[in-house]
Design a binder for these strands. Structure first.
Lengths: 332, 332
DNA sequence: CAACATTTGGCAATCGCTTGCCATTCAATC
DNA sequence: GATTGAATGGCAAGCGATTGCCAAATGTTG
């Protein structure tokens, strides 16, 4: 079950007839050792199948070659793109990638950070549920990069829902809708408030009224209550906090025999897998989530290396856009 | 950016007026130290906010409290359930969870195992692409648990596609279908051959003819070629290797104006998110994927602890079942 | 009360690697 | 040919824990 014993740097040293320190240097700091010796050591290491122990290395040097990504809900398809992008970039950089679920809880998130802090070089926080000040405080102690959450002074990548939200309103306005209802996600969610803000502002510019209902759990299950609330509010255009919720809304609407987009129009966010599968196919805001995940890891990597010379931490903003499908139509 | 210095076991020792070894024991092996001393030490540790460094612990004790899960394709929704189940169980057990993508490549999978081996206590291999003998060989050196792949003598959890496959055939037979076509996934895939075997055997029992086409890439994109091939083979019942492929087939069929289930019936496997969203809603085999992920981690944990006394490594088989939706109907 | 067993705490080695510092060698310079 | 300095390799001290072994203290028993 367990290997007898792995070859260590000492085995290589003995075999090569040099000191362990020389082996270490030959491998990590090649210019510090004579080319001839180096080649010899490298050859021996190769022959013995030597692999440095990441733990021992980390313990001594502090460089763990590992990052962790914290996600509120692993299950949520919304995060898949982001996770994938982050994993890819990490793997390209030779970093080990730890994934952890925070169960939508700020406390849990904080605990995970604390727990993993010794094991990783930094964290990617996706749609963090932490309060701004907490985040900033943690950032003083740990290496953080945010995804889809902006905190001034902290590096991160966001998909800008502003552009998408504006496009939603323009689209709805051009279809003759006079008012929209935003079916909100968790109030603590930065994304939710950002979407709502952009929506409201754009609506105002177009002389539309905008109302916010909720919060609703951002899952398919939440759709029932959301749809009913929206109907009670006599809205003609429903913008759901995300596709999951939108799909739930669609279901409920179908159940209640309300034609979509005949009587009401429904829009979602995220363009998750399945958004184009449902009936009617969902009009939704798509964004480069994978790119965002990748960018966040990128920032984390850069931050670590340049440290001193680095000016202000960078924020990457990626535009989103509306994908028009069949769930939106002319206002009645 | 980086903390000044974390409190170590020595800090606690000094503050508590005992030796470091006593602190270590007070924390990990409480009965080894006098209750009074222990309480005092624990209190001091608490007060100083002491957290053991997992790396130092691992280096010394060999216990890493970390497992890694290797997945052929992080993107594939099929794995989400498994990943989630594994992550949950790991987190419950206080284990750090490393997720890595193997990009459908056996070599890559092997490399990842090698690379991570020093950092983890064991691996969960989901739908491993490794050859049987390679797997067994690796299992001698590393702690492995398999998901949705069976290798004799190795612990693992599989969703039994046998039961689901039989139900497919029964369902199709009762609808009057006389022949089925299996649109196969990757030939190296254990799942694919398992499904095909069960399908063929069941078909035989029902006096139906079964043919296998493919392999096709098990993605939505693969559906075009798969559908066309099936049509060319004049089949009335198509069983796709998974839902992704099935959805792709559905699309292609719609494109070509072939009514489903009017002219052909389509069945998938996995019951992924979205399977009930597409039109027609997909008849598919659902299995407790999340449970499988959880079980695999469970086996890994047990294996580690009982080691000696353990009899044969355990294999968990979880039954699947057919979920009948709208993509299957009477044979023409 | 002596003799022995059990508790309890400390010392020091160890896990595998990195790195500051020193000693040696050898080439370059005056 | 003496002096200086760069290049090179080794020694040994950590990094932060765990743990075998020993010694002192305490308890138990006849």
């Amino acid at each position: 079950m367990n290997s007898p014993r792995r070859t260590t740097i000492y085995d290589v040293a003995r075999e090569a007839g040099v000191a362990a320190s020389t082996v270490s240097r030959a491998l990590n700091n090649p210019r510090r050792v004579n080319p001839v010796t180096r080649d010899h050591v490298v050859a021996v290491a190769e022959r013995l199948g030597y692999r440095p122990d990441p733990l021992a290395t980390a313990l001594q040097s502090g460089h763990k070659a590992t990052i962790a990504m914290l996600v509120p809900d692993i299950t949520n398809p919304h995060f898949f793109g982001t996770i994938r992008g982050a994993e890819k970039r990490a793997s390209e950089a030779g970093l080990t990638f730890i994934l952890a679920n925070t169960e939508e809880s700020a406390d849990n998130e904080r605990n995970q950070i604390e727990r993993l802090s010794r094991s990783v070089d930094g964290f990617v926080l996706a749609a963090s549920r932490l309060r701004e000040d907490t985040t900033r405080e943690l950032a003083r102690e740990y290496n953080l990069a945010l995804v889809n959450r902006q905190v001034e002074g902290l590096p991160g990548a966001v998909v800008d829902n502003g552009s998408g939200s504006r496009q939603i309103i323009e689209h709805l306005a051009s279809l003759g809708h006079r008012s929209v209802v935003y079916l909100s996600g968790p109030h603590r969610s930065w994304t939710a408030s950002q979407r709502w803000r952009a929506l409201r502002a754009a609506a105002e510019r177009h002389g539309m009224t905008a109302r916010r209902l909720g919060p609703f759990p951002p899952k398919v299950d939440g759709g029932g209550a959301a749809a009913d609330a929206a109907l009670a509010a006599e809205a003609t255009a429903l913008v759901a906090h995300n596709d999951l919720l939108a799909i739930g809304v669609l279901r409920r609407l179908t159940e209640r025999g309300i034609p979509v987009p005949g009587r009401v129009s429904v829009v979602g966010y995220d363009d998750i897998f399945g958004a184009d599968l449902c009936v009617p196919a969902l009009t939704t805001v798509a964004g480069p989530q994978e790119e965002a995940g990748r960018a966040a890891v990128e920032l984390l990597i850069r931050k670590g290396s340049l440290s001193r010379s680095q000016p202000a931490p960078q924020q990457v903003v990626l535009p989103s856009h509306l994908v028009i499908r069949d769930s939106t139509g002319p206002a009645v």
